[in-house]
């Protein structure tokens, strides 16, 4: 029997929000991994930043750390390093991940902390009622840019490929089963994984139809996920067709594996070699 991951908390996302699909996919992924004995539910820890995406913390009945704007990669890195047996999944928004916390994101990717980041990329600040974010297109008319945004948008896939993320994917809540599969693969991946999710915001920037018409599964078209150059090129397709799926993945040593060197950071004893150190100070 699947464990019940629902919580008593009232869901306050707007009807039709892309976040519902992400929530659904996450719960399905967690359940399936649990049922297949791949991940024990009590070892799952989620974390979120601040924004509409972050409410997911209240909607999934697993361990969690509701962090602050942009800091999720640092929060989950700390959790993972302290206890590598935990499976950490961070949620973030586009403003959260690519503005406020971009330094934490790129360094977590580069270090290859075994963790999963799911970015709800709706290309707008929604909880603050509609301003441009780093992924809003140039010309985006928001409350702080009535004349249209003058900034060139950031390409999250490029950002993550350039910073050595070892699993880089894009999902779409309109393709629920596909998204669930990505989440499972990202959690299984022994390293830093990021899924940038094209999440339509029905209230401030509704791209449901736009995405539905354009997304295709690049892995079905024989994309080689070990080819970095090809992944880079694929992520430049943003007009008539928008690829979703795994752009790139590689396996390499994890940060927590290297830094803990097989030892458990949480020790019951204290300073086993204190006397030796004191001897050096005499």
């Amino acid at each position: 029997m699947s464990p019940d991951l629902d919580t008593p908390v009232e869901n306050t996302w707007c009807p039709g929000c892309g976040d519902f699909g992400i929530l659904q996919a996450v719960k399905m992924a967690f359940n399936e991994l649990h049922e297949a004995d791949e991940v024990r539910l009590e070892n799952l820890v989620i974390s979120s930043g601040i924004g509409c995406h972050a409410k997911i913390f209240d909607y999934v009945k697993v361990n969690g750390f509701y962090s602050i704007h942009g800091r999720v990669p640092a929060t989950i890195s700390g959790i993972k390093i302290a206890n590598p047996e935990l499976e950490v999944v961070g949620f973030s928004g586009d403003g959260d991940a690519y503005n406020e916390g971009v330094s934490h994101l790129i360094h977590a990717a580069r270090r290859n902390v075994d963790s999963t980041m799911i970015v709800h990329d709706n290309r707008v600040f929604a909880l603050t009622t509609g301003q441009f974010t780093p992924t809003s297109p140039k010309g985006f008319k928001g409350k702080s840019t009535p004349g249209g945004s003058i900034e060139r948008p950031l390409n999250p896939i490029h950002l993550m490929l350039a910073n050595d993320a070892s699993f880089v994917a894009r999902g779409f809540p309109g393709k629920l089963v596909h998204l669930k599969g990505l989440i499972k693969d990202a959690i299984r991946h022994p390293g830093f994984s990021i899924i940038n999710v094209l999440q339509p915001c029905v209230t401030f920037y509704n791209l449901w139809e736009y995405y539905k018409e354009r997304v295709y599964d690049l892995n079905e078209r024989g994309h080689d996920t070990s080819d970095l150059q090809e992944a880079w090129k694929k992520s430049e397709e943003n007009d008539d067709e928008i690829p979703i799926g795994v752009f790139y993945k590689e396996e390499r040593e994890t940060f927590e594996g290297l830094i803990t060197d097989g030892k458990r950071p949480i020790q019951s004893g204290t300073a086993p070699g204190l006397d030796e150190v004191v001897e050096r100070l005499l």
Binding site: S47, S67, A74, I76, G78, I81, H104, I266
Partner: peptide, 19 residues
């Protein structure tokens, strides 16, 4: 870590995990 903001957030994560 990358900066002091990363430092303290990482430390809160590790403390939450029990370290």
């Amino acid at each position: 870590p990358e900066n002091e903001i990363g430092v303290i957030n990482m430390a809160l994560g590790s403390a939450y995990a029990g370290a």
